[in-house]
Design a protein around this nucleic acid. Structure first.
Length: 466
RNA sequence: GGUGCCAUCGCCAAGUGGUAAGGCCGCAGCCUGCAAAGCUGCUAUCCCCAGUUCAAAUCUGGGUGGCACCUCCA
């Protein structure tokens, strides 16, 4: 297994801290709004990673947090006059539902900030005790970046001279502009949490470090966890700060490997609230099968920036369709788990920093060979058995082709339409039988008008939603 | 301004020193009553310039063009 380490900036052979085991932590969503395609990309990438690691025999513990304390959440709660929990539960539930639609498996651990406050207090206290953090007159607790000689070693940033020299600006009582909050004191009567440092809210960066210590870290290793992942934008400052907190409050560095997934843009532009081009998953899932979105978002290497557009999406669907059509040809035959050369090669390609393009090329090749053989020698027992095993392997490793192939091709078609189509097809079959091709072609046009494709096969006539 | 990433067929996209994967689109053909699906065949010398090398898309230097991050952000 090889992984590109985005901190060391090179592809490295993956060697776990503990033989046979992998601890993985990924920064999850802040649940104050609906998830967009970027959240989906990140979740999909690390879902694939865990599948590949497990296929390689590793015992993986995968944690992805839910940030349920945040100024934006609090603001929304205040605006809508709701309890903070009402907001976070709502968006957490929809996040889970949408991830399920994408075939993203639930992480083993899903820690929430609200359930990890004690761990955050402990870490903050430790940092204060060791002079890596300080309290201001206003009651805030800041991490003292100057106290960490390795600060910025993660993102390889060079601290600006002016920035370093800059003195405390107006309201802030920070010693250094780069210092970040571990605990933000809140004096008004808005939503706060009690802590040994007074009423307030925890800093965002603190949450991940504390959760990792609480749920995943092993003390006798040089790193708390094997792999830390997240979106490319999190490297600085979020991960930099996380790493600093952990380094200064424990006897280990945070993570041995760092993985950052590329961004999803819409028509060449970054998704953002201000541009008004955020593409929410809930909207995408109304129009497209979750598995099509999964296939599309995973079809480009995880580190590349991804330019979402509907043309490429439909191209991706056509590629996924091929898997399902082959599945249709073998529908009803007994599933088996026979090991094949193809499976070995597929895993090898995905184990090379998740080379999805090479993996998909291999799959297409397998499909073509299978179709070709089925065309010419329909009774090929061994090939059928192996192909079924290969498709099952693709389902497990990549999560592609997991649905019933007939239902897959009926996405978004209501029952009334299905009945109409069935009736029209029956009429057309009858006309064909009488060799009344004028009538059968007329009926075909009527069927195609429903936005479906028609295909005559030895097993009968079937339609597919285009 | 600082730091970093990228530039491969009409589109998407692998390959990172040994002579260009795959998908979509297109064209021709097989199959089909005709289609659809499936199959076969055809389609690029890798942004520009210079260099290193027996050999470069792949390394080095210089251009040009795009993008990201710089303390809200997957």
């Amino acid at each position: 297994m090889y992984i590109y380490d985005s901190v060391k900036k090179e592809k490295r052979e993956f060697i776990p801290l503990k033989e046979g085991k992998v601890s993985l932590y990924v920064c999850g969503p802040t649940v104050y709004d609906d998830a967009h395609l970027g959240h989906a990309k990140s979740a999909l990438v690390f879902d694939l990673l865990t599948r590949v690691l497990r296929a390689n025999g590793y015992d993986v513990t995968y944690a992805r947090n839910i940030t349920d304390i945040d100024d934006k959440i609090i603001k929304k709660a205040q605006d809508q006059q709701k309890e903070i929990k009402e907001i976070t539960d709502f968006y957490t539930d929809s996040f889970h539902a949408e991830m399920a639609a994408l075939g993203v498996k639930r992480p083993d651990i899903e820690p929430k900030a609200t359930e990890s406050l004690e761990a955050m207090f402990a870490m903050t206290q430790k940092l204060i005790d060791t002079d890596h953090a300080y309290r201001t007159e206003e009651g805030d607790v800041y991490f003292d970046t100057a106290s960490d000689s390795e600060y910025l070693s993660l993102s390889h940033r060079v601290q600006d001279e002016d920035e370093r020299q800059e003195r405390v600006v107006s309201s802030s009582l920070k010693r250094n502009p780069a210092d970040f909050a571990l605990w933000k004191s809140v004096k008004d009567d808005s939503i706060t949490f009690d802590s040994p440092f007074g009423k307030g809210r925890p800093g965002w960066h603190l949450e991940c470090s504390a959760m990792i210590e609480k749920h995943l870290a092993t003390d006798d290793a040089p790193y708390a966890i094997d792999i830390h992942g997240g979106g490319a934008d999190l490297l600085f400052p979020h991960h930099e700060n996380e790493a600093a907190q952990t380094r200064c409050s424990s006897n280990h560095a945070l993570a041995n490997y760092w993985m950052h997934n590329g961004f999803v843009n819409i028509n060449g532009e970054k998704m953002s609230k201000s541009l008004g081009n955020s593409f929410f998953l809930k909207d995408a899932l109304k129009e497209y099968d979750g598995e099509v979105l999964r296939f599309y978002l995973l079809s480009t290497h995880y580190r590349s920036n991804f330019n979402f557009n509907t043309e490429d999406l439909s191209t991706a669907k056509k590629r996924l369709d091929k898997i399902y059509r082959l599945k249709k040809r073998l529908f009803g035959l007994a599933v088996n788990r026979e090991k094949t050369e193809f499976q070995e090669q597929l895993l090898k390609l995905l184990s090379d920093d998740m080379n999805i393009s090479a993996a998909l090329a291999l799959i297409d090749e397998m499909i073509t060979v299978a179709n070709e053989t089925l065309d010419t020698a329909g009774k090929h027992k061994l090939l059928k058995r192996e192909t079924i095993a290969n498709l099952a392997y693709i389902e497990e490793l990549l999560g592609f082709g997991v649905k019933n192939p007939y239902e897959y091709f009926q996405f978004g078609v209501d029952d009334a339409t299905k009945e109409k189509l069935a009736a029209l097809i029956a009429q057309r079959d009858a006309a064909k039988k009488e060799k009344n091709f004028e009538e059968s072609d007329r009926l075909r046009d009527a069927i195609l008008a429903f936005g479906v494709n028609l295909m005559d096969t030895p097993a009968g006539t079937f339609w597919e939603k285009v």
